[in-house]
Design a protein around this nucleic acid. Sequence first.
RNA 1: GCCCCGUUCGUCUAGCGGCCUAGGACGCUGGCUUCUCAUGCCAGUAGCACGGGUUCAAAUCCCGUACGGGGUGCCA
Length: 459
Amino acid sequence: MTVRVRFSPAPTGYLHVGGARSALFNWLYARHTGGTFVLRIEDTDTDRSSDHLIEAIYDSMRWLGLDWDEEYRQTDRAEQHLAFANDLLATGRAYRCDCTRDLIDARIAERGDAANSGYDGYCRDRDVAAGDGVVVRFRTPDEGITGWDDIVRGRVEFDNAVLEDFIIVRSNGTPMFHVANAFDDADMGITHVVRGEDLVNTTPRVLLLREALGYPDPPVYAHLPLIVNEKRQKLSKRRDDVAVGDYRANGYLPEAMRNYLITLGWGPRDGEEIAPIERFVEQFELSDINNSPAFFDVKKLQHFNGEYIRALPIERFVELTADLRPQAVPLDLYERMAPFVQARLVRLSAEEIEPLVSWIVGPPLEPSDKDWKKVMGKAGVADVLRTVAARLETVEWTPEALEACVFGVGEELETKTQLPVRMAVTGARTGMPLFEPMAELDRAEAIDRINSALARVEG
RNA sequence: GCCCCGUUCGUCUAGCGGCCUAGGACGCUGGCUUCUCAUGCCAGUAGCACGGGUUCAAAUCCCGUACGGGGUGCCA
């Protein structure tokens, strides 16, 4: 049997990390088995879906390197879904209903039976005619059990009696999710359904619909554990910052994102968490997915990102970050500094690059009082600065000579000299190696900065 | 309320009855490398939710309890 899996996002929002993980696991399984990865846009909710969002989903998937083999849009297939629903109507497995939500709620209140708050089957035998405000509901069996063997969760069963008669065609005539989903999975020959656990309770409905239409072999289901926030709740587009596009914009590499996502709910057998995607394709098995929710840990993502940044060939690093450098930094200067920058970034962001290099072409950074005191408050700093400033007048202006000069002063005065010089020249106590970028400064400018610092120290 | 599900270091995972004095990774702490920071390397820290069974043997199987989550739409 050839594996056919599908990722079926509803284009009602941007692709978020949960959806991306579902897409990724489907993709991994398809590539692992040599099967087919189908992308099916579930845009049956036309009010909330948009072409713009569909494009954004394509974009995020391509960014992550998740290529698909076939592509469908459910709205293109609405006629078939409707025909499917009509079959059910014709065979009495579905019926029309004109109850409004208010009416249903009123009956529930009247019954005083909060335990059974779903639809009560009021219209089952009323023989409602087609018309305004009329929907089609599926007649769920009153007894029996609907269940399946989930690869991740094991046997899952629902008592049919608790399944209410759900709507399959809206009053505006458009088919709903369950019917579209059931028909398409059958029609497209989907063999494995890999999706989030939040869809578990729609599964018995889809299974019942398939059965009602006589499709024999349901696909194998694998419901993925949810990705949760620090409060252990399902990630929400509103509450949490989770759009894949945002991570892209914030300087995460797609390889890092993809690699990190793989570790959520699955672990490679060989324990190598950071590895080329091919290694994961080789090892990926649905049966190895674990079944408890995973917290999306940005700290660990950042670690992965740092690893991938440092692994970048330097030319590629420059290519990716050149536009993020401060405007005033010439490209050739940036290229010379790039190796030092690369080793220090967690994200490819202007925010992180700026303080590293801006002082070479602009004024020194402005240190906090605390940092200033920590470095400049030490005894002997004035002597160091004075001596270094004097020697800088004549020293050869190369990184090597600068280093020899500054360290030489240290030996003579029996103290460490880099930190005060660094603070004077860059305005920070941390950053790139000092002497390479310092050699890019004008001699006079460098001496000037040290003298200003000296003045401030002697206050 | 009702239905479904989950529970191994703070976090992500390995573990499928003896290889477990529970392994790895992130984080954190300390050390080495280094006259900054970062990297790299080394070390330390910390966990089988609880209670009963089953078994010669349980993190692993069973049953309860507690806690947590998902769903309960003319969303998907």
